[in-house]
Each structure stands twice: as C-alpha cells, then as structure tokens.
Simulated scan of single mutants.
Amino acid sequence: MKTSLWQTFALELDARRPGFALGPWFTMNAMLALDGELDADRLASAFGELQRRHDVLNAGASLELVSESALHVPVPADAPVRLQLSGDHLTLHLHHLVSDPATLWLALSELAALYSGEELPPAVQFADYIRDEAAQLDRTASPASDWWRSRVTDAKVCPQPSPAASAVSPSAGSPFAYRSDLLSPLEVSRVEQLTREHRSTPLVTLLAALSAAMNPGDGDTLVFNTLFSKRDRPAWQRVLGPCIVPSVLAVPRSTGSLAADVPAMRDAVVGCSRYARFPILSVEVPARTPFFEYVPQQWPGAYSFGPVKAEVVGAAGPKDTGLADALAIRVRPTTDGVLTGHFSGDGTDWTEPLVSSLTGGFRAYLLG
C-alpha cells in the first residue's frame, strides 16, 4: 500500500534520525478510568472486531491484562496497536505512523460501541484517504508550488534572541526536554477574550506572541515546521489513521501589536493550511527550522461500555527519547485551564536558557 504524506515524511525523518519515527515510543496514548468492571472476554472480542474493521489497525493484537496501567507504553511500528486492561483503567496505545489524536477517540468510540453490541456502518479505510490525498496533490500541485515558493522566498529561520536583549549567551549547550506552565487559567481567559475580540483563533494569537518574542528583523518572514489536521471532507471525519499533513508555517514578522499582527498572521495560517498538501520536502526551508504545534484540549466525554462508564483521564503523544534536533515547541491547555509548553532541542543553537528567555517575551506580548 502507498504511504500518506505524513507517513512518507515520518519515514524520511527516521532515515535522518534513526529510531525517531520508527521507534516504539512514537505513539499516541489514551487512558480511561472505569466506574465498573469490564468483561475481559467480551472486550477482547470487541477489540478483535475493531482491528478487522480497519486495515490500518489490523495487527492481530490481543487484549493485554496487566497489573498496573501506564500512559506511555512502547508499541512496535510493525505491531502498531496495544490495548491494556488493568482493574478500573483501560489504556489504548497506537503507533503514530498509523494514528493521529482523532484516531484515538474514534477507535475508543467504536470499541465501546462494539462491546455494547451496537451495529456500526461499514468502515471507511485509510487506503481510501491516501488515494484521495494523492489525487488532491496532483490537482493542486501547480498553484501550491507557486504559493510556497513566493511565501518562503527570503524566509528566515526563526532567530535567537540577541545576547543584549536576553542577557543569555547563545553558545551551544546540552540537549533538553522539559515542560513549563506558560499562562495561568486567569491569564488564559484573558488571552481567549483577546482572541475573540480580534475574531481570531488561539493558534494565530499564540503564533503572533511567539514571533514577537523571537524579535525578528524588519520584513522577515519566519518559518516554523508544523502539522495540519486534514479531516477536511465528510468521508474522513470517521476514518482511522493519521489524517495529518506535515507542513510549514510561513508567518510575517510581528509588529508587537496584537491588533496589527492578527490579520496578517491569520491570512498566513489560512494560506499555509490551504496548501499544506504540497510536499514539505519540496520547499526550500531554512535549515534547523523550529517545530511549533498548538494542541487544543479536545478530550471527548465519557464512553459507555454497556453499563460501565469510561472517562478519559489522560492522553499523550510521542515520548521524548532524546532524538530531537532543532527546537520543538508544543503548546496545549490542560484540564485545569493552564496553558503549558513542552520544549525540546539538542542545544546546538537554541539552548535551554535561551528558550526560557523566549517564554518571557511570549508572556510579555500577551499580557503586557
């Protein structure tokens, strides 16, 4: 079977950094708390049927009964699905080559329905998504190529803060990976209000703040690597598989004013998303371009496994294994309303002290 744009990108990424995308920690994970006891045989049967329904998950995996549940569990790329039951917790682990966040919730929804004896419509297969993606790529290749080449001409890799501005030396440091709270719930509410006032989205507002904190030069276009969800057709709303596209965010220099920055930033994000299916490796992006992703909190409500209710109490993406290279920033709200960031890098250019300085500028732009 052909691979999707995301799968092709992940395989090429692994070729450059072996073990990054094919390793057992490149996973999507969800943990459910149960308010009753599930029948293990019935659950195992439903799990087998779920795999038979979806070619992308058909690994012949069996339900695992374990003594303790864990949110991060290794999953081999050639056996990309694990389901574990531990007392009052149920966990699903999928390799990222065959899943995205939506796949987790769709798979659990179907699993609950199958356990409950519900009849489900025929499944749409990920192979159909791949064929449609390839057809869209062929149809839009010329305008997409023209748009990207005009957008990234003279683009700059996101610059470090100057030592004078940050009082931090930019010399190379050690690899790092850490989480940090960026905004309190009250501050998040304030930023959400600003976003509504400017008729924008959280992604646009946060990008404006990040680009301002990076203090680019006049006229610069900044470039970030990113991912766009592409469940953009009714048929793909319920397909299991990674309906995501690797792309770049080519965003304009911030002026330091949210009112002025948001319209230009919004137009840039819309354009990048529209032409995201143009292969990222065909775009001449500056070396060591940072990765940025805003991950909204979209956990579903409770699932019903017959009379047993299952509530999502944890979700996680790939575990950091020290194979990151350029700066990566993932920003997401938590269940208690805090905006948190996950930062990682090899310390070659963006060091941990420089990133700390960056977060200070990010806060100052939003709250100053």
Rank of each mutant, 00 (worst) to 15 (best):
A250W: 10
D14S: 10
A61R: 08
N29C: 10
Y129D: 08
L120F: 03
Q136H: 10
D128A: 10
T205I: 00
F20E: 13
T255D: 02
L203H: 02
S344F: 10
E119K: 12
G36F: 13
D128S: 13
T205F: 00
E192N: 14
L71I: 07
F26K: 02
R196P: 04
A235S: 09
D320V: 07
G360T: 08
L222T: 03
L34D: 09
F176C: 08
V313C: 02
Q136S: 04
L5P: 11
Y365C: 00
E110L: 01
E64N: 04
T140A: 14
L106P: 09
Q125D: 06
V223G: 12
G48N: 07
A44N: 04
W147V: 03
V239K: 03
F47C: 09
R42L: 08
L358H: 07
S162N: 00
D14F: 00
S142P: 06
P175Q: 11
Q237F: 09
P216M: 03
D35S: 03
A310R: 14
E284Y: 01
A164F: 07
L22Y: 04
A316H: 12
T348S: 15
G314Y: 07
K2V: 13
S171R: 15
A70Y: 02
Q298C: 06
Q193N: 13
V355H: 02
A141N: 09
F343L: 10
A260F: 12
H342M: 12
L366D: 05
H72D: 15
P170Q: 11
A328V: 12
L354N: 14
R233Q: 14
D320T: 12
Y294I: 03
P121H: 04
T205N: 08
L222S: 03
T221Q: 09
S62L: 11
F224W: 00
P300L: 11
G301W: 02
L83P: 02
W148M: 01
D349C: 07
W236R: 07
W299I: 11
Q193E: 14
I244D: 07
W236C: 03
G345C: 05
W147S: 01
N29F: 08
T3Y: 15
A134W: 06
H93L: 05
